[in-house]
């Protein structure tokens, strides 16, 4: 319970900071009053939707990452590394072209990528799972680029911004919908908590503890697909968030695996902080939040590999 409380407090502080920070800093009292009066333009139109979206998407991706890592017992098998996010982006672009529901397109894209990776890597162990994921992700993003090139110019500019993970066009309705989805996911996690608590223990031990593995797998993969699709729809393909959230949450708070809720909260903290950083570094340019996230995440991956190597040496 303690890690969740700690991280919730940290998230609260970050959200407050994100609301007061930006091109013009607001005094804490102004933020507080601005929150309750709908006339405050800076808070209600500019900062609140963006921050709410960052929190919602961060929660979704952090939870999805921790679920996937626990199910596969592989810290690398997160939706962004194994191609789910890229699959969702491809689905997004295709759905735009076909004029169908974008969320449906993203869900189908993510599910398709997941299915492809599972089918390819069947019975070949966790390493193959990640390798095939990288391949599937690369294929999907190349296909996205090709489709994008055939689109009209106005769409291209808009899509390029979306593809680099931007929160600039956030609105409260999207944030609310995503937050609703996350709350549903949290409810499902609590409902299945008995089984989910045994993630990371491996198939044999889990079966021995009476976990119905097929049901658990279906639950986890379904949740991961929907959460990834929803978050990608809202903020674009943001890399490395799902990958860093869970290990960072465990390192900071000492939570024990699977640490689902700490991971979700850490994801929200990271994305809120990254968005704030993006706004502070370049207030006039729309610097994509995804870029900042990559600049945090990629060095972490390098550090991860480096420390693993030192451990084995």
């Amino acid at each position: 319970m303690k890690p969740v409380i700690t991280l919730s407090l940290a998230l609260g502080c970050l959200v407050f900071l994100a609301l007061s920070g930006g091109r013009d800093w607001l005094a804490p009292a102004d933020v507080w009053h601005g929150l309750w009066s709908t006339e405050n333009f800076v808070i209600h139109v500019l900062r609140l939707p963006r921050t709410a979206l960052a929190v919602a998407a961060g929660l979704a991706l952090g939870l999805a990452g921790a679920l996937m890592q626990g199910l596969t017992r592989n810290p690398l098998a997160t939706p962004d590394v194994i191609g789910l996010v890229q699959g969702a982006s491809l689905g997004h672009i295709v759905a735009l072209g076909l004029g169908t529901s974008v969320f449906l397109g993203e869900t189908v894209g993510a599910a398709f990528a997941l299915f492809a990776v599972i089918a390819l890597a069947r019975e070949q162990g966790p390493i193959a799972f990640v390798l095939y994921g990288i391949g599937v992700g690369a294929t999907a993003s190349a296909a996205t680029t090709v489709i994008l090139l055939r689109a009209p110019d106005a769409t291209i500019t808009q899509m390029m911004l979306w593809l680099s993970g931007s929160l600039a066009r956030a609105d409260l309705a999207t944030a609310g919908a995503l937050l609703g989805g996350v709350i549903c996911a949290v409810f499902i996690v609590l409902w299945r908590a008995r089984d989910l608590r045994t993630l990371w223990l491996g198939d044999d031990v889990m079966t021995g503890l009476g976990v119905n593995l097929p049901v658990l797998r279906f639950t986890v993969l379904g949740l991961v697909t929907l959460l990834t699709a929803g978050a990608t729809l809202a903020v674009g393909p943001i890399g490395f968030l799902a990958f860093t959230a869970a290990p960072l949450a465990r390192a900071v708070t000492g939570a024990e695996p699977p640490a689902l809720f700490p991971a979700a909260l850490m994801g929200a903290c990271l994305l809120t902080a990254a968005d704030l950083a993006a706004r502070l570094i370049a207030p006039l340019v729309t610097l994509p939040t995804g870029l900042i996230m990559t600049l945090i995440g990629a060095p972490y991956l390098i550090f991860f590999l480096w420390s693993e190597k030192r451990k084995t040496a």
Binding site: P126, A142, A143
Partner: peptide, 25 residues
């Protein structure tokens, strides 16, 4: 090249991973 490259990576993986066949998880 990238469009052909993703499937190429998958193909190469299928060839090199097949004989290794790690213990099924």
């Amino acid at each position: 090249a990238a469009l052909l490259g993703g499937p190429a990576l998958i193909m190469v993986l299928r060839r090199v991973l097949r004989p290794a066949r790690w213990h099924a998880e």
